[in-house]
Amino acid sequence: MYFRILAKDHVSTFVEGLAHVYEVFAPVKNESGFSFEQVSDGSSIVLDYPMTIIPPKKYFVRSKESLFRYDTHSGDVVESELEVTPRVLFGVHACDINALLMTDKVFLGDYEDPYYKARREHTLIVGVSCMPVLTCMCDTWGTGEVQQGCDLFLTDLGDRYFVTCHSVEGAHVLDTFADTHEATAEDTKALEEHLRAFREAFSRPVDATSLQLLFDAKYNDELWEEIGEACLSCGACSAVCPTCYCFDVNDELDADGNAGARVRCWDSCMNSQFAEVAGGHDFRPTRASRVRYRFYHKFWSYPARYGKTLCVGCGRCDVACKVNINPRRIIGALQEGARS
């Protein structure tokens, strides 16, 4: 691996250099918290943020996008190109990078989603280390570190970053736009200290032993009625979730009726009618059945298909849910009987 040291003083220059060639998106502070926004001025970005409200999935799975436009009469697709601009997402946490690897499995499977793929291929990702807040549980899923999925990763060593280059394009932009120097033995020691402090900062361990089996066996547990009773079906959990990717597809017709667009937008399996078929039969008519479906998808179905839990422990749903429904609570309740 190619390692470099980037002084914190030099981050602004690096970002501004990148902004000449790429659209750069980075966490900035606003009234309600932190969010990824386009930046040109390096001084506006905040790299030691707890979490952004909406994860960076918004750059790959757009909250709303036109798939194509068509001529209503001939059925011909009249717009046939997706415009993608080379981008850098600067300052992405490890959990959110790992989340993208999970949505990759879905969007780049047997059928490739060309929109997602084009955006993924034209976006550089610069990760940044973080320290856990109370809601974080990446320690449970091993998603607090990055093995792949980004181009550069910056680990905070106080006054400088330990930069890991994961791709040649990452190394190239670093060499071109950033003033860095070689890592010394002292830097490596500081890295170890950071990693130790990171590990020790988690204070609320979650027991995920035999989780899939417990989910399966307790499918009809009364827990789901209880949780369904509390759930508001607001869908906030899936909007803020970096691994929720369900979408709906609709047609939008121009005012003159001659042309229209096929548009997709974020959807949530929490919404009533999500599993309704023509004629009105609903396979998940109750809130209990919908909230259960969501957790089963994360902890049973996705792992059964792709071998990994569909949760990176970012804790956003924990913050967003007004009635305290979150993986930590659900897993705790499912484990209760199995505990000694």
């Binding site: 499977g109 047997d110 059928y111 989603d113 369900c246 399996c269 396979f283 089963y296 998808h297 059964a304």
Partner: peptide, 15 residues
């Protein structure tokens, strides 16, 4: 909805 295993509307268990 999508027909290609992405949008999740037709999920039945893990299939």
């Amino acid at each position: 909805k999508c027909g290609i295993g992405i949008c999740n509307h037709c999920g039945i268990g893990h299939k």
